[in-house]
Design a protein around this nucleic acid. Sequence first.
DNA 1: TACACTGTTCGAGAAACGACGAACAGGCGG
DNA 2: CCGCCTGTTCGTCGTTTCTCGAACAGTGTA
Lengths: 117, 117
Amino acid sequence: MTHPGRVAPNHTHPRDVPLIVALAALADPIRLAMVRELSGMEEWQLTCGAFDVPVGKAARSHHFAVLREAGVIEQRDEGPCRVNRLRRPEFDERFPGLLDLVLRPEFDQPGTSREAS
Amino acid sequence: MTHPGRVAPNHTHPRDVPLIVALAALADPIRLAMVRELSGMEEWQLTCGAFDVPVGKAARSHHFAVLREAGVIEQRDEGPCRVNRLRRPEFDERFPGLLDLVLRPEFDQPGTSREAS
DNA sequence: TACACTGTTCGAGAAACGACGAACAGGCGG
DNA sequence: CCGCCTGTTCGTCGTTTCTCGAACAGTGTA
């Protein structure tokens, strides 16, 4: 056995994810874009290759693994493709408000809040 | 001039901090411990050297810079020491709930929530 | 002035991270 | 059965991050 082409992805439930792991998973621009894109879709509707991120499929696969092990996403094989789902409810129960924060694209630019003084 | 010993620390207001920067700053065990230790103290009461973290003062200084530039802490010189403060209100206004999450030590261990099934 | 104390900066090394191309494996359609 | 498409794994490379020791500078005290 050299290359195990199709193995069942090993998931981690958000319940078993330390906070640091969740933060580290979300503290990356590519993964952040993935999570946001996923949040705007129906569940199980976005295939791995369909994400609009500027990296090759190898790096993509790596990022999926990170997000999976951080309890952020869930994956399922559907024919030749692998489809994705944001673990919104489970993740929210474990880390309330974190996904809400992350899904606001206006937090990328500085000074977006109505500043005073 | 070779080594500028005491310069005014350059702060960044949370308002000007991108989300990624905030997440990356908090996604480190040492800095997380610092933030938590700081949260349990009066403001301006903890000096840089008084933090209970297992790294030397050089690394410590580096972590302080990261936290400062992420808008998490504020520093002020008080005599020969540099004292610290958590920017709780400003940071909360920019990233509501993030500090709340981070300050819960029970999120470090997995499975702390009442698990089912 | 001289000295102890505090914290920053530099330089270097180790480790972790992210990216790619290539090779591989499963599903599906010819 | 043979390709085509999809996605994972491997090996490698380059960058970033974390850490330390050493040198330096400011404050306060003897």
